[in-house]
Design a protein around this nucleic acid. Sequence first.
DNA 1: TCTGAATGTATAGCGCGCTTTACATTTTGA
DNA 2: TCAAAATGTAAAGCGCGCTATACATTCAGA
Lengths: 69, 69
Amino acid sequence: MQTKIQELRKERKITQSELADAVNVTRQTIISLENGRYNASLILAHKIAQFFGVTIEDIFIFNEEEENL
Amino acid sequence: MQTKIQELRKERKITQSELADAVNVTRQTIISLENGRYNASLILAHKIAQFFGVTIEDIFIFNEEEENL
DNA sequence: TCTGAATGTATAGCGCGCTTTACATTTTGA
DNA sequence: TCAAAATGTAAAGCGCGCTATACATTCAGA
């Protein structure tokens, strides 16, 4: 899954650490999400969207390809 | 986490099995989501929202309480 | 009324999201 | 230029989302 996390984060001049703290996860989690290593949980996706003031659908890009869970 | 899955499903007169098949999970998964036993993954949440033609935020209700992952 | 459809409960197992720790590399700015 | 800040990689471990299977209960309609 692709995300616009890095894009939004840089736009607002926020570091990975600051974002991690804001949504209460480790920096590793943010790195992994930004680099597409795995998908966020629904709750984390919600927290990140809320932090940036956008919807989940605005940040997380769902490939119709990878529709196999 | 609360969801409106059951509500939307009954509104449209669809069985748990039909919904499960439509989003490619087992009936157990639908039951567990409807009964609040666990949270959907982000991808499954997306598929269900798409199936019903609504947004993730329309179906999944985030308690600000349970903000602890 | 009674059968089949729909919903629910239980449980073992697998893979992934997230943590933790430690260290390496790249970027920034005084 | 060079130290500190920011970003990245690696790897082991835990809990939860989902599967699979089997069986119980509730509900609808001929």
